[in-house]
Design a protein around this nucleic acid. Structure first.
Lengths: 210, 210
DNA sequence: ACAAATTTAGACAGGCTTGTCTAATTCGTC
DNA sequence: GACGAATTAGACAAGCCTGTCTAAATTTGT
């Protein structure tokens, strides 16, 4: 495993102040000097890690957003699958867990660094998700007033039952993820779904809206 | 400010490893020796803080749960007010912020301690909130299948727009809290509200629908 | 006012960590 | 195989932190 990846793991486990370079070197299987050669000092290494994680997480989120069901066959099932993918690929995976933890633990100490994350991350991903819901509503699949609010509520509902686990830094089981997404999406559709789920009119509806 | 309160503040700001006893002593206005006299060592002090915060937060949460609108005059307004109270008294206040931060940053290092928190905290508060929603549904104000799920989703929706701020350890403005609660409760009621909001027929309606 | 208990400042040893330095070793490439 | 670049182990100084100790000062109860 690379130095940066190992360092991310150690910083997350031990916190910035609690981690030490020898520990990272040992786990990465390199000498301490090599770390100093590559990254200068502990703080520069930390910044490199956050930038790296931000970039990779963003890429994962956008990749997953691109799988959003624009022409759903089964709206409920497709949205559940999307929510599960989002959890899997962006929230529960290594990078997602690490970035979240670093933001939570060190956010206060590096305001500029995490302001940068906020702009590059949530600042760009939320509008992208909201745009997908807006399109889905426009195509007649959903009844949404404010797509930004709906997007945030969708994610909040999908993760509603995983909060305590996330808080403690744990990873929910596959079943828990699916269960939370299922319950969340059902509630979401009770709130925003069309009354009659337009059966086979989907093709016309989709074309008309595209 | 007491030693324990000051220590909580410093541990949150600096993390366990990053905090030092001299800092706490200086901010608390006592000598280092006094801290050692009272609490033994750094780790015991930390445990005392978590226990203290858990207890106080739990008390606050139960006190707020007791203000749940069992006989709402205006269901939407009453639930919004409840959600805002919950945020104010339990999540955004000093104790709530500190406990959340300590759980997030040190949860991995003290599994037993935070397992204790999980039992005493979420393990008891979630059922209490769920029971209130169950009663409200039973009285005919809501249409809920699973009160446990509904309770978690209610809180998730009420806080949906505050997540990013919480992540970075910030405190949302009053407006943001109200806005998030309002949007969340409206969506919640779109999902779980009775079709016709039973106006003044509340007594009859409740009986008829129950 | 006095005695007991608590608190204080400061010194102190021991341990750990950062970041640098050096000399030897290994690696990649021709 | 040979040469230059990168990596390594280990020593090292400087600094910081924990936890203890002591003797003086302060507070508390009576």
């Amino acid at each position: 495993m690379s130095i940066v990846d190992t360092a991310a793991s150690v910083f997350c486990r031990e916190s910035f102040a609690g981690a030490n370079i020898d520990m990272i070197a040992a786990e990465a299987g390199v000498s301490r000097q090599t770390i100093y050669n590559h990254h200068g000092d502990k703080e520069k290494l930390f910044v490199a890690i956050v930038r790296d994680l931000t970039e990779r997480c963003n890429a994962g989120i956008f990749a997953t957003i691109s799988t959003f069901p624009d022409q759903p066959k089964d709206l409920e099932a497709d949205l559940i699958a999307f929510a599960v993918r989002m959890n899997h690929n962006c929230i529960c995976n290594r990078d997602g867990k690490f970035l979240r933890k670093l933001i939570q633990t060190e956010g206060g100490r590096y305001p500029e660094l995490f302001a940068e994350w906020r702009e590059e991350g949530p600042g760009r991903t939320w509008p992208a998700i909201a745009a997908r819901f807006a399109r889905l509503a426009h195509a007649g699949f959903l009844d949404i007033d404010d797509p930004d609010v709906a997007a945030r509520q969708f994610m909040a509902l999908a993760n509603a039952e995983l909060q305590t686990t996330f808080m403690l830094g744990g990873t929910p089981t596959e079943d828990e993820v699916v269960q939370s997404a299922t319950n969340g999406v059902r509630t979401f559709l009770r709130a925003f779904g069309k009354r009659q789920p337009m059966a086979r009119a989907s093709k016309q509806g989709a074309l008309a809206s595209a």
